[in-house]
């Protein structure tokens, strides 16, 4: 089996956050949006960016971790966190071009998407609700993945120019 990947269709995301709720229920057993490993940022009406780990081929976060708390799940390709080793030093956050690892009050280790061991709850929730903005696919080649390694503001700005055209700057300020 090949490794996995969550494809995000930015044109389809409604900004509903059902993915965040499903993620936190799965990982934390409560509704806890801040602790969700996928984060939706709504910059303007219709410009909602689901932001999560894209499993870079070179895994800079894993390389940067001074305590070897991060490692790759060979089966899925997800970055896993050894919660006992993580010191919350923040090296992985700063080295990640998309600033994906989350530092959250109440947890003494970083939170990163673990692909739910191969069956991501966020994807299921998005499908159940009929939006299909998230799709589970075999991990594409590096050249397909690389353009997605970016901050949500960058995606929002491009998407907004497409949707709002000349009005984009006025609405979004980006």
């Amino acid at each position: 089996m090949s490794q996995l990947w969550i494809f995000r269709d930015f044109d389809k995301c409604s900004g509903c956050r059902l993915c965040e709720i499903a993620c936190s229920l799965r990982h934390e057993g409560v509704v806890w949006p801040e602790a969700s490993r996928i984060t939706v940022l709504e910059f303007a009406p219709g410009i909602a960016i689901p932001h999560t780990c894209v499993q870079c081929y070179d895994y800079p976060c894993v390389k940067a971790c001074p305590t070897n708390a991060l490692y790759v799940d060979g089966k899925t390709g997800a970055v896993l966190v050894d919660t006992g080793r993580c010191t919350l030093c923040g090296a992985c956050v700063r080295v990640c071009p998309a600033r994906v690892p989350k530092v959250v009050k109440g947890r003494n280790y970083v939170l990163i998407c673990d692909l739910c061991g191969g069956e991501p709850e966020c994807v299921k929730a998005c499908k159940e609700a009929g939006f299909n903005a998230l799709e589970l696919v075999p991990k594409p080649e590096k050249a397909y993945v690389d353009p997605y390694i970016t901050l949500p503001e960058v995606v929002a700005s491009k998407l907004s120019s497409k949707v709002y055209k000349g009005f984009s700057k006025e609405v979004l300020g980006l």
Binding site: L41, V93, A98, V103, L151
Partner: peptide, 8 residues
């Protein structure tokens, strides 16, 4: 983002 990661 540099301190906390990307949040809503």
């Amino acid at each position: 983002y540099d301190l906390e990661g990307v949040k809503s």
